Amino acid sequence: MSAVIAVEKEKLETPPLDIHYLGDRALRQPAKRIAKVDDSLRQLAKEMLQTMYSSNGIGLAAPQVAINKQLIVIDCEPDNSANIPLILINPKIIGYSQELCVVEEGCLSIPGVYLDVTRPKTIEVTFKDEQGKPRKLQATDLLARVIQHEMDHLNGVMFVDRVDNGLALNEALQKQGFSVQAVKPVK
Rank of each mutant, 00 (worst) to 15 (best):
A45F: 05
A144I: 00
C101E: 12
L17F: 06
V125M: 04
P63W: 05
L44N: 10
K36A: 04
V146I: 13
T118A: 10
A6V: 11
N170C: 07
I123R: 14
L154K: 10
S179M: 06
E47S: 10
K133N: 14
L86H: 11
Q181C: 00
I5H: 09
Q70Y: 06
D116L: 03
Q176H: 05
T14V: 10
M52Q: 05
D164G: 04
V117D: 09
S55P: 00
P91M: 10
V163E: 08
Q174W: 03
N56I: 00
L44P: 05
Q70M: 13
P185L: 00
N80T: 08
G112Y: 00
L100M: 15
M48D: 06
A168Y: 07
E10N: 10
A26F: 09
G132W: 10
V103F: 12
K11C: 00
Q70C: 15
P15G: 01
G156S: 05
K187M: 15
Y114G: 00
P85F: 04
Q176T: 01
R135N: 06
L100E: 12
L71E: 04
L86G: 08
I89P: 14
S2I: 11
M151R: 12
L108V: 03
A172C: 02
S81H: 11
L169Y: 03
Y96C: 13
Y53A: 00
A35T: 13
I94Y: 09
V183R: 07
I72F: 02
M158R: 15
L86E: 07
Q148A: 11
E104G: 09
E104M: 08
T126V: 14
G95K: 11
L88P: 05
E13I: 03
E13L: 10
Q64E: 09
Y53Q: 01
S81Q: 13
E171W: 13
I34N: 04
M52S: 05
R162S: 11
G57H: 00
D24H: 13
D75H: 00
D141Q: 15
V7K: 03
L88N: 06
Y114I: 00
M151H: 09
L143G: 13
I89F: 08
D38S: 10
D164H: 12
K32C: 03
P111Y: 01
V146E: 02
V37F: 13
K69A: 01
D161A: 06
Y53K: 02
A45N: 14
H149Y: 02
F159L: 03
T14R: 15
I67E: 14
K133T: 13
Q29I: 13
F178Q: 03
C107I: 07
K175S: 09
D39P: 00
G95I: 03
I123C: 05
A26M: 08
I110N: 05
V125K: 12
Y96V: 15
L100T: 15
K32E: 14
D141G: 04
